[in-house]
Structures are given as structure tokens and as C-alpha cells.
């Protein structure tokens, strides 16, 4: 049994993130965790759908939502998912520098998304007086979209911590699973956003 986690470039495993048993456990554990997260967001979506028309005299979905900013946010987040794929591609080729670069771009796109979201919330509050407390619709909207935003914040903290921690020592079989589980989590956040874009914004604008 090897105690050493360094990667031998001449004898490169096909997928360094799943070359150790711990890596395999983490990979599966995160998939299972995302199953639970799916239920969490499903419940939030259900609550939102039940309450979206309960504006209590405040602004309605059609008055609030606009296409421009939300479209930009969608582009930013979808692209960040793609760049994380590039990062994992470079991990499998044992190219640590390029992996860090693409993970960095992923994080920047995520920060861009987050900035747009903060602007969006501030806009609703100041221009429309639409707050977390103003109606059941407001509570449901900020809770659903805010939970997603919270996941983005957590993901960003995670990848930044990983990148800083490992910047000097490079890729090995111990930290490869960590990058890989992050990428998986990031894809999940992206998928949730696709549903938010459709169910909250698109459906809100037409109905």
C-alpha cells in the first residue's frame, strides 16, 4: 500500500481524482449529497410556485423581472461551468498551472454572477420597494434565489481556499479529488440556475 500521494507523470492514472479509495468515496458522497440538495431546491421551488402570485398589493412578477440582467447572469454562470470542465480536463493531463488558471476564470465568472445578483436585489428593493418582508411572494422569491446565491458564495469560498492552499505544491492524488468534487458541485449550482431562469424569470415574464 502506497503512503505517497504524488503523481508519477510516467505512470499517470487515467483520472487522478478517483485513483485513491478516498477519492472514490468523495466522488460518490458528493453525488449522493446532491440528491439531497435536489430535494431541498425542489421544496423551495414548490413553495415559490405556491406563493408567486401572492404579491399582497406589491409589485408582481411581470412588473419586476427584466430579461437583460438575468440573461447576462445566465451566460456568466453557464460559461463558468464550461471553464470548470476545462480545468478538470487539464487535471487529467497533469497540467496543474492550466488547471489553476481555468479554475481561477471559473471563480471570476462566479463573482461576476454574484455581483449581478446583488445589483438585482438592490434594484428590486430600492426601485420597487420589493423586499423579503413585503409579501409572501417576496419571501419566497428571495428565499429561493437567495439559497442559490448562498450556494454560489459557498462554492466560491471553497475553490478560492483550494487554489490558495495548493498553489505552491501542485497537483497530487490527495488534492485532486477536492478539485473534482468542487467541479461537480459547481455544475449542480449551474443546473439549479437553469431551473430558476426558466421557472422564476421566464415563466414570471409570460404569465
Amino acid at each position: 500500500m502506497s503512503h505517497d500521494h504524488s503523481i508519477d507523470p510516467k505512470n499517470m492514472p487515467k483520472d487522478p481524482s478517483k485513483a485513491t479509495t478516498e477519492g472514490k468515496y468523495k466522488f460518490m458522497g458528493l453525488w449522493i449529497f446532491l440528491g439531497g440538495e435536489t430535494v431541498l431546491f425542489a421544496c423551495l421551488f414548490g413553495t415559490y410556485l405556491a406563493l408567486k402570485d401572492s404579491a399582497a398589493g406589491g409589485p408582481t412578477t411581470q412588473e419586476l423581472y427584466g430579461m437583460g440582467l438575468v440573461f447576462l447572469m445566465t451566460i456568466l454562470l453557464l460559461t463558468s461551468s464550461l471553464t470548470s470542465v476545462y480545468a478538470i480536463y487539464h487535471m487529467k493531463n497533469n497540467d496543474f498551472k492550466k488547471m489553476q488558471l481555468w479554475m481561477g476564470i471559473t471563480a471570476l465568472l462566479g463573482i461576476g454572477f454574484l455581483a449581478c445578483e446583488i445589483y438585482e436585489f438592490a434594484h428590486y428593493i430600492h426601485e420597487f420597494g420589493f423586499t423579503f418582508r413585503s409579501s409572501a411572494f417576496g419571501s419566497a422569491f428571495y428565499t429561493l434565489v437567495g439559497f442559490h446565491g448562498g450556494h454560489v458564495v459557498f462554492g466560491l469560498s471553497w475553490i478560492i481556499a483550494l487554489m490558495v492552499r495548493n498553489s505552491k505544491r501542485g497537483l497530487n492524488l490527495y488534492n485532486a479529488p477536492k478539485y473534482n468534487t468542487f467541479a461537480l458541485y459547481w455544475h449542480f449550482i449551474d443546473v439549479v440556475w437553469v431551473f430558476i431562469f426558466t421557472v422564476v424569470y421566464l415563466m414570471g415574464m409570460v404569465s
Binding site: 405556491a50 406563493l51 401572492s54 418582508r133 409572501a136 419571501s139 428565499t143
Partner: peptide, 20 residues
Amino acid sequence: FDRMFGSAFFDAALGGNAVI
């Protein structure tokens, strides 16, 4: 959120629904 931060999920006056 309803009890501590004033949201209205279960508050019928603001359109909330206790059956949720």
C-alpha cells in the same frame, strides 16, 4: 424566517399559506 426575520410564508395577511 417567519418567526425571526419577518417573512410572510405562513402569514395569510400578506398572501402566505399555512398549508405549505
